[in-house]
Amino acid sequence: MNYKELNKNIKNNEISPVYLFTGPEQYIGHMMEKTLADIEISRGLETLNLTIYSDKNLDVSELLATCETLPLMSKKRMVIVRKEAQFDKITDKKDLERLTAYLEKPCPSTLLIIYWEQPDKRKKVYKAITKYGSVVVFEKLDAGELQAWITRRIQNAGKKIARSALDVFIQRSMYLANEKKNMEMVDNELNSLIDYIGDREEVTKEDVLLILPQSIEDGIFKMIDYAMTGDKGRALLMLSQFYQEGESPFGVFSLLLRQIRMLLMVKIHTGRGMPPKTVAGEMKLAPFVVNKILKNGRNYPLESLWDLMVLGADLDARMKLGEIDQNFALELFLMKIK
């Protein structure tokens, strides 16, 4: 199930004794565990009935003993095994057998939540959870879910935001375009935005532009533009500015390759007659991101993009093998763009 289905089950009081939280959006999982704690643990008694394991080398005996302990003056006891506890690293056969036995018959007065970002579905422990508990997959939000999330957060703060300002926030956040961006980062940006406007009710586009300055991804597009139009000097100047802002050569190179790959894929899809909205769905991007890529890449020949991907793959391998200096490789790559 996803977080929406979990929310629905919670509202219907259909709560499992064991949950496995997987997927990249662990931040949303933390929010859901708080919702469960508010329901299952008596207010003011959290310290007595909530145990969190976050240290490496999880002690399975201690974990199971805690799970078997009755709650104190509360409906349930909650036990949470965080990602940092490395549940997936448990290899001792006896420990695995004891865990599996508990999962097959969990204590009814305990709510156990286990974080396992990429579970091995072949393992007996995983199969026991799927059979006797519930698996919740916290994937990255899509464009519609992200819009709803941001709107709801702003409304909960007693503010409102126009659609144009919302679109700018989503664009500048880079959540839909950057797979490494998560909802914790987006929420931190939202908090900064809400704090900035103070007593004002409406969030404006100008507020968003101030709080979320132009991202390095936008700068990468400009750098490619300069290189494509033959202005290598300005492209190299932008590269120097990225270094001054703390970006590493390998980090800039990775972003550069990613932008070129996205340009290539969008041009291939649209070249086959696929409308931008369909391309957005195919690539799991927001429509405005695809439109922006099309606008930025309208002057980039498809053949040149293919050549750059081949060159980039070669330089990437040589950098990782230590056969070429990262700074030199990146400068060489820019000089080859035409």
Score class of each variant (00 low, 15 high):
179 E>L: 11
130 T>G: 07
198 G>Q: 13
270 T>P: 00
94 K>M: 07
298 R>P: 02
299 N>Q: 11
105 K>N: 09
72 L>Q: 11
86 Q>S: 09
46 E>Y: 14
27 Y>F: 15
301 P>F: 06
16 S>Y: 10
40 E>D: 11
296 N>Y: 06
3 Y>D: 09
331 E>I: 09
272 R>V: 03
66 T>Y: 02
328 F>V: 12
34 K>F: 04
183 M>R: 13
203 V>Q: 01
281 G>I: 02
47 T>F: 12
128 A>V: 11
191 N>Y: 12
61 S>E: 14
57 N>F: 09
118 Q>T: 15
116 W>R: 13
160 K>G: 08
70 L>I: 08
87 F>A: 10
211 I>P: 01
103 L>N: 06
176 L>K: 06
90 I>P: 12
68 E>S: 11
114 I>F: 04
188 N>L: 06
330 L>V: 12
69 T>D: 03
224 I>W: 08
93 K>P: 04
51 T>F: 10
107 C>D: 05
87 F>N: 08
162 A>F: 01
294 L>T: 01
60 V>P: 00
229 T>P: 01
88 D>W: 10
24 P>K: 14
277 K>Y: 03
31 M>A: 09
337 I>A: 06
326 Q>L: 05
58 L>T: 10
148 A>E: 07
287 P>A: 00
293 I>A: 12
39 I>V: 15
192 S>N: 14
285 L>W: 08
298 R>F: 10
